[in-house]
Write a protein that binds this DNA or RNA. Structure first.
Lengths: 333, 333
DNA sequence: CTGTTAGCGCTTTCAG
DNA sequence: CTGAAAGCGCTAACAG
């Protein structure tokens, strides 16, 4: 009953070879005579032997697992990236240890440490702010790190993203070109470079080109949830905004529905451009106009980059910028 | 530069104690004199020592990681469960290896095997069909398994869910009570017991109670994606349905929008009840009436059950049924 | 309260 | 092409 674990040693004995040979056939080492290989394979099959990955990890110092730090799996932006990451990881025979960080800086550091303790071969980090402490941990270990959908002005680790600044500028300009004088910009904390530096700069550039003044009431910092949409819309309304560039789809959808619930016509009286291209954008009525980021690809390319780093291959460029477009749907004219 | 890994042995030497003692303080074993503990802790801190979880796993035969098999992280139903799983796992100091299975039976078996090879202490499985092969793998290993949001008529492993049959019956009855003569039922394959047995039975019972005939054209099997909504709505329309119970939120939203796009008034001319209570249900206009499953809790309770199983605690009941309600929102009268 | 001693199951030189 | 042997870094009896 208590089926005891069978080891490489059992296989060796049963097949009349040394464990080194068994190890070789298990690992596909070509230096094994076909006859021997066949015999060993037969015993492996008969005994239903399965290599213990933990022992292998200890001996080889490779675990074939990578850590993925994600703010929240329940957010479609991040889960879409995660999907791309996992698919490529699987393709390269890696497994994923997924850890939610809640965008909590303390938890991020803690999670990173347990990931490193588990000897992951690499780490993919999502989340918009790289604190100094986190950066210190990154460089302290020799474990390669890649940021996915996350910018770090201090480009020490690999990263994959789109040009957030240009995308935001384009979105804002589009709204201005549609005749709006009061275009709002809503994102999470400006302490996150992706918002406070890149996107905000894009927004400002668009204003400058149009010779519009920068008005503080039009720039909001809000968490990315659907339910704050109401409150955010009220603020926009109060500020006199007639259009908004929103950095998150759930939030954008909340704002859209708040407007609709108040009888506002979208896009006639109010226009919205969102930023993440998650499947939510296709599910609203009208559909959300969005910056079309290649979410899956960002994850996939990040994981691909990480495999190269783990493999110590030469990398041309540690920072990869993927293309985007603006997908005009129903929330803009 | 090449900061070589420092081991328990280094700490022992530096602190002038044996590695056993270091191991004890690292593991919080009380049998260490405070002075010694303090000294060791100081050295650990100075050397920045981090225990190698892989070595620990090999020696202790416990990895403090559990495998989670998920059909698709990108589906809000599953990611909500995953969120509950991860939170409780973190609370109990476990990490999660997340593996997408795409509801692909072959991949499920393969993924389960690599999870077992990695010596996970337990497995949480999501996905609606437990094939015989999978069941065989489950019982072949002594690793505890818990199903989350997944029913298995053959109750060999732990599982956490709601009473799908009763919930579906209630939803259907509600629609019948609202005056509908043609209520449709849409789910994924009936080969999955959750649909073909539980939900379908609930639907049938509701019809029986109302003395309605069972009409095949009203029972559709469809994949759970938003974009098939159009086609599904067409079929419903052709079959003369005026109301539908849908087993997935994304699909329900697709159907709802297809109806709206055709100028149909919801809920006046067409009513919809969906089943998963994901956040999507609050995001549509009108909001989707849904079976209010406690998604996060299903995941959380499943993980909690698994910790007990891994801990070899006595379990009162391996199958846990959580309560649900029907949340009447905008897609029903 | 602390040290010694075996392993855990596998990879990896190094010989031959 | 194959085997012997030395670990990987840690836990877990067992003494003392």
């Amino acid at each position: 009953m208590d089926k005891q674990t069978i080891t490489i040693y059992d296989v060796a004995r049963e097949a009349g070879v040394s464990m080194a040979t068994v190890s070789r056939v298990v690992n596909g080492n070509p230096n094994v005579k076909p006859t021997t290989r066949k015999k060993v394979l037969e015993v492996i099959d008969r005994l239903d032997y399965r290599p213990n990955a933990v022992a292998r990890g200890l001996a080889s110092k490779k675990t074939t697992t990578v850590g993925v730090i994600i703010p929240d799996v329940t957010n479609l932006y991040f889960s879409s990236l995660a999907r791309g990451i996992d698919d490529i990881a699987t393709m390269y025979k890696y497994n994923i240890i997924l850890a939610n960080s809640d965008k909590n800086e303390e938890k991020e550091v803690q999670v990173l440490n347990t990931l490193l303790a588990k000897q992951v071969d690499g780490v993919i980090f999502m989340g918009n702010k790289i604190t100094d402490e986190l950066r210190a941990e990154f460089s302290r270990s020799r474990t390669p790190v890649v940021l996915a959908g996350t910018v770090d002005p201090d480009e020490q680790v690999g990263s994959v993203n789109i040009d957030y600044e240009k995308a935001t500028e384009e979105a804002t300009t589009m709204l201005i070109d549609n005749g709006h004088k009061k275009v709002a910009f809503i994102s999470e904390s400006h302490e996150e470079p992706i918002n406070g530096v890149y996107r905000l700069n894009g927004y400002k550039h668009a204003l400058e080109k149009a010779a519009f003044p920068y008005e503080e009431e039009l720039v909001l910092q809000s968490e990315y949830t659907y339910k704050v949409g109401e409150a955010v819309y009220e603020q926009l309304n109060k500020a006199g905004a007639t259009a908004a560039v929103v950095a998150d789809d759930e939030l954008a959808l909340g704002v859209l529905n708040a407007a609709l619930d108040r009888g506002v016509n979208v896009p006639e009286d109010f226009e919205i451009v969102t930023s993440n291209n998650s499947k939510l954008t296709a599910m609203s009525r009208p559909r959300l106009t969005t910056v079309e980021q290649p979410l899956y690809d960002i994850g996939a390319v990040a994981m691909r980059l990480l495999t190269k780093l783990m493999n110590k291959e030469e990398i041309e460029e540690k920072t990869i910028t993927l293309p985007y477009t603006i997908g005009k749907k129903g929330t803009t004219k």
